[in-house]
């Protein structure tokens, strides 16, 4: 037998790492929203009660402000933000309408089980201009969810309650199994919140929305236990390349 002279070495496969699936999902959503025209705004995770609650029309009596729901730090002088909404307040105070920006990041609540963690991620957006309506909010939500879940997805808008929006809505999508799954919260910015940010609510109105990243990532990737995202197990992370 005569040996071949082809001694080209095998392909040198360089192993690539992966983005964390939560950050990948957050990036995907934020990139989508940037493509719609939203600017990215950042804010701190340690907040004051003023920005996290008061300015957002969350009254002193609201259950979310209790010690069993919110992490307070440094002798209650500050807290870990319970949502990314304080960034909306900071953004509105720094800008003049028309304005459109999003913020994404970690938020904290006193929960710890298979579907809730004390730390999770949100992306929120706000748009303030003259004559912004609920019908326009619907258009935006359809665009977001069609992009995320495809144009065949069925949506359902339900009235809900958030102190910082009025009217408020929760939006469900119909799963393959025929179950409605809550996917985001949204609404028209409560005029009280606009006024708190020195925006004339007689002239301007706004829409706002917020998505829980873990919930969408669990749905999109088929992860059933939220805790899997934060074990830093390479067998888990390696799947999201």
């Amino acid at each position: 037998m005569s040996a071949s002279k082809d001694i080209t070495p095998p392909e040198l496969i360089k192993e690539r790492g992966s983005l964390h699936p939560i950050n990948h999902m957050k990036d995907s959503i934020m990139n989508l929203l940037v493509s719609f025209g939203f600017e990215i705004v950042d804010g701190p995770e340690i907040e004051t009660e003023e920005f996290n609650f008061d300015m957002l029309n969350i009254k002193k009596s609201h259950p979310a402000r209790q010690m069993h729901d919110t992490f307070y730090v440094e002798n209650k002088s500050n807290l870990l933000r319970t949502h990314t909404s304080p960034v909306q307040i900071r953004g509105m105070l720094e800008r003049k309408p028309p304005l459109a920006f999003i913020s994404g990041g970690k938020v904290y609540r006193k929960d710890d089980d298979a579907t809730h963690l004390p730390m999770f991620h949100q992306v929120e957006g706000i748009f303030v201009d003259e004559n912004v309506s609920f019908a326009q909010l619907k258009d935006l939500i359809y665009k977001i969810l069609y992009s995320l879940f495809g144009r065949d997805v069925q949506l359902r808008f339900r009235p809900s309650y958030f102190p910082f929006t009025e009217p408020s809505a929760e939006v469900d999508i119909l799963s393959r199994e025929g179950k409605w799954l809550e996917i985001l919260g949204c609404g028209l910015v409560n005029p009280v919140v606009l006024e708190n940010c020195n925006i004339d609510s007689n002239k301007y109105s706004g829409l706002a929305f917020g998505l829980g990243i873990e919930r969408i990532a669990m749905l999109k990737h088929g992860v059933t236990d939220i805790r899997e995202f934060y074990k830093s197990n390479l067998d888990f992370l390696n799947q999201f390349k």
Binding site: R16, I22, P118, F229, S232, L237
Partner: peptide
């Protein structure tokens, strides 16, 4: 070849 993680 690095993997991104998120910790509490």
């Amino acid at each position: 070849g690095f993997y991104e993680v998120i910790n509490s």
